[in-house]
């Protein structure tokens, strides 16, 4: 009991003093996960949208593949990435194993299917509503794709946050490909696992509190975005990137 409260007090003092180790670990976690989520979005969103509105050979197979990738156990992804990047693996020459880049790759593989699948759902619903109108205006499917992504932006942001949630909370894969090397590839989750096994509860708890705070912040953000009336947060006054602020000419009125 005493150990426990001591650990709590120590954890809070680490947080309040912005302990250098703790800050470094949190910063690396955020960098890795944000990079992974943003790269996953760059690939997953157009892919999801294309799957929603396109008709091309292999579309069904891709949908099934992505849906099954969503449920992949992280350690398996870690193992596969490890094998690819290990010295004798096909990408071994790049020397990426046990670097933050390897962790980004593993998280990207975990998050991309989620973002692609959620994007496909969002865009499918929107396309059902927009299709005739856009075709009537003369928009091709290629022209429609960015339109749909733009108009589904608030739901897509929720998809991004869901992806980020999975990335930041992930342990197994980054442990395997990152190696949990001090000052190099140590992130929040892997540190917690290590510190607990070492018996250093203070740092583990401090990081745990940070993780919970981040989770709460992410959920709060998606709630704000999801609740009606708050979509203004995302909407520029002219809306949708075709707004008038972008026009060089000033308004006459």
């Amino acid at each position: 009991m005493n150990d426990f409260s001591d650990a709590f007090i120590a954890a809070f003092s680490l947080l309040i003093q912005l302990d250098a180790d703790l800050v470094e670990i949190v910063a690396l976690s955020l960098t890795v996960s944000l990079t992974a989520v943003l790269s996953a979005a760059v690939i997953g969103m157009p892919l999801g949208a294309a799957l929603a509105i396109g008709s091309f050979p292999g579309r069904r197979m891709l949908i099934i593949a992505i849906n099954s990738l969503m449920g992949l156990p992280p350690v398996v992804v870690g193992l596969v990435v490890y094998l690819m990047l290990s010295r004798s693996g096909p990408l071994g020459v790049l020397g990426l194993l046990f670097t933050p880049t390897a962790m980004v790759i593993a998280q990207l593989i975990l998050v991309m299917p989620i973002i692609a699948a959620l994007t496909r759902q969002v865009v499918e619903v929107l396309w059902a509503e927009y299709e005739e109108q856009l075709r009537s205006l003369g928009a091709t499917r290629w022209r429609a794709l960015p339109t749909l992504l733009m108009d589904g932006r608030s739901q897509l942001l929720t998809a991004l946050l869901a992806g980020f949630g999975r990335a930041i909370a992930e342990v197994g894969a980054v442990m395997i490909v990152g190696g949990n090397i001090d000052h190099a590839t140590r992130v929040m989750t892997t540190s917690i696992a290590l510190e607990v096994s070492k018996g250093d509860l203070a740092l583990a708890l401090g990081l745990g509190i940070m993780l919970v705070l981040i989770a709460v912040a992410v959920n709060g953000l998606s709630w704000l975005i999801g609740s009606p009336g708050q979509d203004r947060l995302l909407r520029s006054k002219r809306g949708g990137g075709y707004g008038r602020q972008q026009y060089p000419a000033a308004r006459t009125r």
Binding site: L137, A139, D151, K237, R238, G240, Y242, G243
Partner: peptide
Amino acid sequence: LRRSVWANVGYALSVK
């Protein structure tokens, strides 16, 4: 379209 009134007209013109 889930955009402003102004952008709704602008979009149609931009497609053209």
